[in-house]
């Protein structure tokens, strides 16, 4: 009985963690590649969530419709953010980056408040099939889908970066943009591509999260902190690190919510994070 219950908690944690991994991998990619911290990352997730809400209310579409749409929309948003803002503040002081992306966050967050209103929106529970029980463990359709897609897309993103020629070119730009340029790679094109990929991954994650989590204009703030913790834990720039850290945080969160109490789950997650920073500041998978 207890073992089943514990297993249930771990499985829920892993499913949640896979989604954490997906929406953190975009942040990690940008951070590692350009050394830019996107403080508007949570708002990208939030807009992905609203995409799912709008797709459902406007045309009754489920995740199979909203996930691709969110990927395209938020990916485009990423490219726009890169060309209009990030490209210009990248070489500036770190403070200008915080200022610029935080301004963007406010703009998007309160723009959403203006357009969608402050009310929490939820998608119907049975949008993604019903829950089922397997080996004594209860699986909810929406979370299984979110976890599975999150895991697969994160792995694909990792493979894209490490196994393809485009990935190598992107990594070359992140290593040394000038040297890459001399090799015939256009740094701006690669960086814009990184923002497109990061945006698309984040949009997909948002559309998936919306199937089991409330959507509101300020939800991005909460999710952004999880993403920051995941990225720092996994190592900046490492998508694989984000995957491992995301799963770890998902499990730690649901275990501590179960064993100690829901209020303390964040405390444990932040405490783990501070300890990791202390003993291994480059993160689990990062290099110094």
């Amino acid at each position: 009985m207890t073992t089943t219950l514990l297993l249930q908690v771990v499985v829920s944690g892993l499913l949640l963690g896979a989604v954490y991994a997906l929406f953190s991998s975009g942040l990690s990619l940008i951070w590692g590649m350009m050394n830019v911290v996107n403080f508007a990352h949570g708002e990208f997730v939030m807009l992905g969530m609203y995409t799912a809400v709008v797709v459902w209310t406007a045309m009754g579409g489920g995740p199979w419709a909203s996930v691709p749409i969110a990927a395209i929309l938020i990916g485009t948003l990423g490219v726009l953010a890169y060309f209009l803002l990030v490209r210009h503040i990248m070489r500036g002081p770190m403070l200008a980056q915080i200022l610029g992306t935080f301004g963007l966050a406010l703009f998007l967050r309160y723009g959403a408040l203006w357009v969608f209103g402050a009310n929490f929106k939820t998608l119907p529970d049975d949008l993604v099939g019903h829950s089922f029980i397997l080996g004594g463990i209860r699986f909810e359709g929406s979370r299984v889908l979110a976890g599975a897609v999150g895991f697969i897309v994160t792995v694909l993103l990792h493979l894209l970066l490490t196994r393809t020629s485009v990935g190598s070119r992107m990594l070359a730009v992140s290593e040394d943009a000038t040297a890459a340029q001399l090799m015939g790679i256009r740094p701006q094109r690669m960086q814009a591509l990184a923002w497109a990929l990061a945006g698309a991954a984040t949009g997909i994650a948002g559309a998936l999260v919306a199937t089991f989590f409330y959507t509101s204009p300020t939800v991005g703030e909460t999710l952004a902190i999880v993403a920051f913790v995941t990225v720092a834990l996994g190592g900046f720039g490492s998508v694989l690190g984000a995957l491992v850290a995301g799963l770890l945080i998902g499990v730690v969160e649901s275990l501590s919510a179960f064993l100690i109490g829901p209020v303390y789950k964040d405390v444990i997650v932040y405490a783990v994070f501070v300890l990791v920073l202390w003993f291994r500041p480059q993160g689990l998978m990062g290099t110094t």
């Binding site: 209009l84 803002l85 210009h88 503040i89 500036g92 200008a96 980056q97 200022l99 610029g100 935080f102 301004g103 963007l104 966050a105 406010l106 703009f107 998007l108 967050r109 309160y110 723009g111 408040l113 203006w114």
Partner: peptide, 14 residues
């Protein structure tokens, strides 16, 4: 308010 606030911050950072 905050949309404008955010836009001003972005423009100054830019």
């Amino acid at each position: 308010t905050f949309v404008v606030y955010g836009a001003i911050i972005v423009i100054i950072a830019r």
